[in-house]
Design a protein around this nucleic acid. Structure first.
Lengths: 206, 206
DNA sequence: CACACGATCTTGACAATGACTAGATCGTTG
DNA sequence: CAACGATCTAGTCATTGTCAAGATCGTGTG
């Protein structure tokens, strides 16, 4: 924990924080390993020891993003009504809110081939987000999507509309049609719910 | 048109073709301007004269992608039934087919910040795709989305679910849930239609 | 307490890349 | 046929990611 000397003490975390700051400032295509190291106050070769290479660092950062994505979803769910469909909508709203509040991180996670999906830790946290969707869909349809094709179709419809809207907002393509920037958080959330609510209208059709 | 000499004669097109080949092989993050030039058989400085910089070249390529995307949608529409909803679904199917058959190009167009949206030609061809969606939604709802909020909500729901599913397929995230690779083109298309068909169920609710 | 050892970080090197510049080459137009 | 502009080449520079060798630090072991 000695902060002044040769050894940083907590460089791995410091690098992740610096990397996210750089990511926010310069975007996915503008970030560089050397500038991240400089921002963290270490030499350009230091990150290699902790993360192997640039991809390793960004995979770790993307993994942290998945954890925060899941936390955001849990927060929205807790604030929602208890019916399965309301939970499902809340889950989607959390997904989209995370995207809006973490544009570049979201782009790193979903719009790039940078994160290494074969990385164990990364695979685990990203699957956890998917797993939440599975159980919520099961609560809604009454069947496990993994064993019931119609239920999986519903799951994919939910995921697609939520992910798609998140992408369109993050990329700026939704601004012309929706003017989200001019709207209050409340009307904005209501509009998002209205859009993603156009799916998952059926219940337990077995 | 003299092909053997100092002047290529048709270098701009040749570079675009070489760029797409490179894109397919190495992906959005792996493509390099110099390797594109080498593939086209010219020096590394040649592309600058035609496209300014790397971004200019890739913006032009992405623009061509939008034209092909629109062509693919028109083809699917022509093969579909005449009801507005069938046309809308066909439009979406074309969008997703384009994505599946042109993964890296789709990623360049939608998953990167590389194309310059302020480029006039690019803005025109990309808006044309959006414009088609507008008129089809109007045919479906009976109102112009640009002047009717509920209609715009429907439009965004359509676009979101289609774009989202395309993203999930292209990124490989849909493979575990759907196993598209194991399916015949017919059952694959049917499955896609079933998913994106979970939206736009209403008609003219004014 | 000393010291060896591994973990951590620095430094320097290298190849690849995008951008820029000056100059060579070509076709065209007057 | 002689400018002239368009096209392409070749060289240079700064930046980047990766690697290897070495310096520094903390810790456990004798």
């Amino acid at each position: 924990m000695t902060k002044n000397s040769y050894h940083h003490g907590d460089l791995a975390d410091a690098l992740l924080i610096a990397a996210e700051d750089e990511l926010i400032e310069k975007g996915v295509e503008g970030i560089s390993l050397r500038s991240v190291a400089k921002r963290a106050g270490v030499s350009h070769g230091a990150p290699a020891h902790h993360f192997g290479n640039a991809r390793g660092l960004l995979t770790a950062l993307a993994g942290k993003g998945y954890e925060r994505l899941r936390a955001m979803q849990s927060r929205e769910e807790a604030a929602a009504a208890s019916e399965p469909r309301a939970k499902l909508i809340a889950n989607g709203l959390g997904y989209i809110k995370f995207a809006m509040e973490n544009r570049e991180l979201f782009r790193l996670m979903f719009n790039s081939s940078v994160p290494d999906r074969h990385n164990e830790a990364f695979a685990a946290v990203s699957y956890a987000v998917f797993d939440k969707l599975i159980s919520q869909t099961e609560a809604h349809t009454g069947h496990s999507p993994l064993r019931h094709e119609a239920s999986m179709t519903e799951l994919m419809a939910s995921w697609s509309i939520v992910h798609g809207l998140a992408e369109l907002i993050v990329s700026g393509r939704a601004e012309l049609p929706l003017s989200l920037k001019d709207k209050s958080p409340e009307t904005r959330d209501a509009l998002i719910k209205a859009i993603i609510g156009q799916v998952n209208l059926s219940v337990d059709r077995s």
